[in-house]
Design a protein around this nucleic acid. Structure first.
Lengths: 145, 145
DNA sequence: TTAGGAATTGCAATCGCATTGCAAGGCCGG
DNA sequence: CCGGCCTTGCAATGCGATTGCAATTCCTAA
């Protein structure tokens, strides 16, 4: 673990998630990434930890509003830490997700707001998700060298 | 088949897709839906046709720019007919996809344009996809009765 | 401190979607 | 009619994810 245990426990407590050794490990691994990760990514990082435990930890995190799922069309689910305003009642991560065509990482761009979209008459919006594909900052820098 | 064979053949020819009996059946089934469909949907409609054939027909259609895939987070891939400007070179379906929380259908809203999104410095956009979740026109009407 | 119960974890099995390999069939040009 | 290519069908496989169940851990209460 690279993060302080107390720090991690605080995060779980704030979201009303029972503290367990496994969950601390999973959260610690999540915090080490700037980008969205898959269960496979976590499994590799956490070596002997059972895949199923990771799935269930993530599911619990999702239900309590600590992480949100991202469908980036890669075939496997990805997830990332939520904004602090998310909770058991629901998510409010209606921000941009960016999928880099070079490094294939998916990352959250919470600062890129999605402009309101005008839908045809009779449609009601409850949530939305914008997936932008292109070249991320990090890869763009490497290419220009 | 509910559509005229000549009509269907024209569509395939325009996209440079070889005409076969199976592909006419699949295309015919696709044209019967206003919303995006899954391979499962098609399999039910086309009864004795092998699932693998449907997968491969769709894949061919996708490569030739006749249909585009939609990831709506439902777990299974969906696809819908493309705009006419799509071709083997690539797709230009950067329109809104709407997932109804009531009937769970996904539909294309080509007329709802996506406003330009301002990304952080250093990010380059190549494509984007907006998935809006809510209540579709048809379900909204039923609920208000 | 200990007993009991709820929550969590691990293993095995299973499910669903999708893909691949390979052989058979159909189609077309020569 | 023959030969080759594209397409199709079946079987097997891969992979991500889920579920059932038993074992374990954790927490609380006596």
């Amino acid at each position: 673990m690279v993060h302080d245990t107390g720090f991690l426990e605080n995060i779980l407590e704030q979201k009303q998630i029972n503290i367990t050794a496994m969950r601390l490990l999973v959260l610690d691994a999540l915090l080490q990434h700037q980008h969205a990760v898959s269960v496979n990514d976590l499994e590799k990082m956490l070596q002997p930890v059972d895949r199923i435990t990771i799935y269930r930890s993530i599911k619990t995190f999702e239900q309590r509003g600590l992480v949100h799922f991202i469908a980036d069309g890669s075939g496997s689910d990805k997830f990332a830490l939520c904004a602090e305003t998310c909770g058991p009642g629901g998510h409010q991560d209606m921000h941009v997700h960016f999928l880099c065509n070079v490094c294939h990482n998916t990352l959250c761009l919470p600062k890129a707001l999605i402009p309101p979209v005008v839908l045809p008459q009779g449609f009601y919006t409850e949530a939305y998700e914008l997936l932008v594909k292109g070249i991320c900052q990090s890869c763009a820098e490497k290419e220009s060298m």
